[in-house]
């Protein structure tokens, strides 16, 4: 059983929902990322999405674009990101880590070489935002051989036919994009998401994470009612932007933001158990 699978397995047994924070590696500077990951785990993260900075983050809104730019000032490369994961793993062997980013840095490295390096570093899942399953078979093959889950997106525009294609390619969990738009936009409509998730569950048995537009404990709790995992990105990254000139304050500040979401989500789980 992969680390991601056992994570969701354990949460299901406890009837709890997963909380998945996203941070861009190297933002605002490389030495912040690993302490920040540990702080997020302390604050209740079940799984961490680590963003690989890219010069042209086409699916991201201004908050994560700016995070990529801050990280790239320090030339944070995919190699550097794997070094960070390796360092994180020296003291945390349990929390799954998913790399999220765009294909080109992986393309340049080469699929097999990247997959080996990622596995050796302790990466559990890879989500390439601009790589739909139709283009992904070589990469997913290389990842799966080494026990790394290939995570794919589902969207409001995804047809039933495509849901089948995606669920056949995906493992670990699937990531449902809550609205048509870019990360960080204020367009979340939980009842629409709920309707679509009913459809999605007919096509996959994998746990479903929901992300995009979750900005506070209230929206996190609302999404936790209907999804298996709540993904929070821009809300955390915008805090990093505010504190970029005081990097030592970032891990405790983000831990505080995340733990408020954790409490709100756990309250939902507790009520659902009653």
């Amino acid at each position: 059983m992969s680390r991601i699978e056992s994570c969701f397995h354990r949460l299901a047994e406890q009837q709890r929902k997963a909380l998945i924070p996203y941070v861009t590696a190297g933002d605002p500077q490389p030495d912040v990322t690993v302490p920040l990951m540990h702080a997020l785990v302390e604050a209740g993260a079940d799984l961490i999405e680590v963003g690989v900075p890219f010069s042209d983050p086409m699916a991201d809104g201004p908050v994560i674009q700016a995070a990529c730019e801050r990280a790239l000032v320090h030339h944070t490369s995919l190699h550097d990101v794997l070094d960070m994961v390796r360092e994180f793993r020296t003291t945390d062997t349990e929390t799954p880590v998913v790399l999220m980013g765009y294909l080109n840095p992986v393309e340049v490295w080469g699929y097999n070489a990247f997959a080996s390096a990622a596995a050796a570093a302790g990466v559990d899942g890879v989500l390439m935002v601009d790589m739909p399953p139709e283009e992904a078979s070589s990469l997913t093959g290389a990842l799966r051989e080494l026990g790394i889950d290939a995570i794919f997106l589902l969207a409001p525009t995804t047809s039933n036919a495509r849901m089948n294609i995606i669920s056949e390619s995906a493992s670990g969990f699937v990531y449902y994009v809550s609205f048509k738009g870019v990360t960080g936009a204020n367009r979340l409509d939980v009842s629409k998401v709920a309707d679509k998730l009913v459809e999605v569950r007919k096509h996959t048995d994998l746990p479903i994470g929901v992300g995009f537009g979750i900005r506070d404990p209230e929206s996190a709790a609302e999404v936790a009612r209907i999804a298996d995992a709540v993904v929070v990105g821009s809300a955390l990254v915008s805090r990093i932007a505010e504190l970029a000139d005081r990097p030592e304050t970032i891990p405790p500040a983000l831990a505080e933001t995340l733990s408020e979401m954790r409490s709100a989500i756990d309250l939902v789980s507790a009520r659902q158990q009653k």
């Binding site: 601009d130 997106l153 969207a155 995804t158 495509r162 994009v177 048509k180």
Partner: peptide, 20 residues
């Protein structure tokens, strides 16, 4: 039919744009 010119081309976009 998927837009490939040999190894080039294709459709590398986030899922939301696949249907459009």
């Amino acid at each position: 039919e998927r837009g490939h010119f040999g190894p080039y081309g294709g459709r590398f976009v986030a899922e939301t744009l696949m249907l459009p």
